[in-house]
Structures are given as C-alpha cells and as structure tokens.
Design a protein around this nucleic acid. Structure first.
Lengths: 138, 138
DNA sequence: CTTGAACCTCTAGTGACTAGAGGTTGTAGA
DNA sequence: TCTACAACCTCTAGTCACTAGAGGTTCAAG
C-alpha cells in the first residue's frame, strides 16, 4: 500500500494534484486508514499513470474521464476512444499550424531589432503597432 | 469619438475584454461622458490595436504592459523590447517542439485503432495505460 | 418624450492546477 | 510508551485571460 506521498513519487504527479484529480472525479476515491489518510494499491498507481500519460499528451480531464470509463468496460466498442484520440490529434495539429505562423512572425520581428537602438525606432514596437508589417495572418 | 462598442467593432476586441484590459491596467483609462460612459479617440484605437496584435502573437498581458511602457518613452533603449520578443519566440519554439512530439505520438496512437473493435483490445487505451508504447519522450 | 439598444458595475465561473492556513495522523527513535 | 516532526487532512483563495450574467443607467433615434 502506498501513501499519497509515495504514489506521488511513483508517478511524478504532485500530491495536491492527486487530491485535485480525486476531487474532480477523474481518479477514483482511494481507501482510507482509520485516521482518514488515503492509501493506494498497485491498481491506483496504474490508474494515475494512465491519467498522467494522457495529460502529458494534452488530453483534457473531461476526455480522460471518458477514456477511463471506456477502459472500465472492456466489452464496449472503442469507437469513442478512437474519436477522442483523433480529436486530440486534430487539436494539436491546429495548435501547431497556428504556432508555426506565430514563429515566422516573431522571427521576423526579432530579427528586425537587436536591442541596441532606442524605443522610438524599435522594429519590435513598430511591428506590433502596425499589422501591415506582418507576412502571415494570425 | 468612439463608444466602447464602436471601438470593439473597429479592433475586433470584445467589449468585456476592453473593460478587462482597462481594469488590469494594460489599456489606459478612457475619458468618460457626463453619464459615465467611456469614449475613445484615434489614439485609443491604436493602443488597443497594439494590444490585440501582441495578444494574437501570444504575448502575455504583463509583457504587453512592459512593451507599451517602452513605447511611451521613445528615447529609452529598446533592449527590453528586443528581449521580450526573443523570449516570446523561444517560448513559441519550445511549445512547437513539444507539440511536434505529441503529434507524432498521437498519430501513432490514432493509427493503431480505427474504432471498430472493443475497448479491451483498443490500442488507444493500451497506449495510454503503458508509456512503453511511446516512441518519443513527452 | 418614449423606447430600447448600448452602456455601467459587480460578482462568479472557466481549466487545471498551486499556495497557504490551520489542524491531525503516522512512524521512527529514545 | 512517549515524543518529535514529517506527512497527512480539509478548506479557501489565487493564477491567467477572459466570459457570462444580474441588475441598473444612459444615449440617441423617432
């Protein structure tokens, strides 16, 4: 059996975050000692590992709750799990697309000023003040 | 003179967001009518345009406040503006790096399951449960 | 002068935590 | 068995950048 601190070390998830996960219902409530402290078994370690891995991949708590629910019913269709993963992929790809445009613009802006001038002539400030400088849309 | 609604249309920033910007101090307080309604001049349009453009590029409100402060002093060195832009670029590039790794992993996970099986055999769920499936670190 | 769209302030909610206060429990060493 | 004290407990509030809604006031057209 693990205390919450030991579970935290085992999974790399901070103690208050574990309590938060329990509070919002993504992590099932742990058993308690007589003194009301949480105790976890190996199963608990695995469930939290699943959550951490999914969070690291950017899945929302809501999506993870749905995925865990599916995991609990091995006989159900996995169409939903597939859809959630594809949705998350689309989300990440959209963010990549947007960030690439931002990167291009920021490189242009950054390159225009090496910081040895004066604000009045600063290309960074001028670029931000006037969208027309921009090469991409964002 | 523009009312807050007209300023909103002119800049594409929502009315409550304009009030929020004023509240947190990134947008200077507007003049008021006798009836206490905000009124903006062309200068106000430009300042909000600057904020919007910078927000679209992902700069934090705090960074934008610093940039506007620099803009107000055209004789000051623009080293700080340059540093803020470079920092923002580094930030975006870090996010891009991370998201690219996530994308690769999510493609792998998504490709492993087309949603016509059963949860117990689902590659999506199996991958999330076990980090060992992963090709990249994240 | 009336109508109603647009304005005002204030509070609370979002997501996913993080920080801190104030109190209790578990466990190692004496 | 007692004593420290680290680790635990709950609860509230704060983070960021807004967004939503309540309840009341002002502006401008007809």
């Amino acid at each position: 059996m693990y205390s919450i601190g030991q579970l935290s070390k085992a999974t790399g998830v901070k103690v208050p975050t574990i309590r938060y996960y329990e509070q919002v219902g993504v992590l099932a409530s742990a058993g308690r000692t007589d003194g009301n402290q949480r105790r976890y078994d190996q199963d608990g370690v695995e469930r939290l590992g699943f959550i951490k891995h999914a969070r690291d991949l950017g899945f929302s708590i809501e999506a993870i709750t749905a995925l865990i629910d599916l995991q609990q019913h091995p006989d159900r269709s996995c169409a939903d799990a597939s859809a959630i993963a594809k949705h998350q992929l689309a989300d990440v790809q959209e963010k990549l697309r947007r960030l690439s445009a931002l990167e291009a613009e920021l490189i242009r802006i950054s390159d225009g000023c090496d910081g040895d001038g004066v604000s009045g002539q600063c290309y960074v400030l001028a670029s931000l003040a006037d969208h027309k400088h921009c090469r991409t849309d964002h």
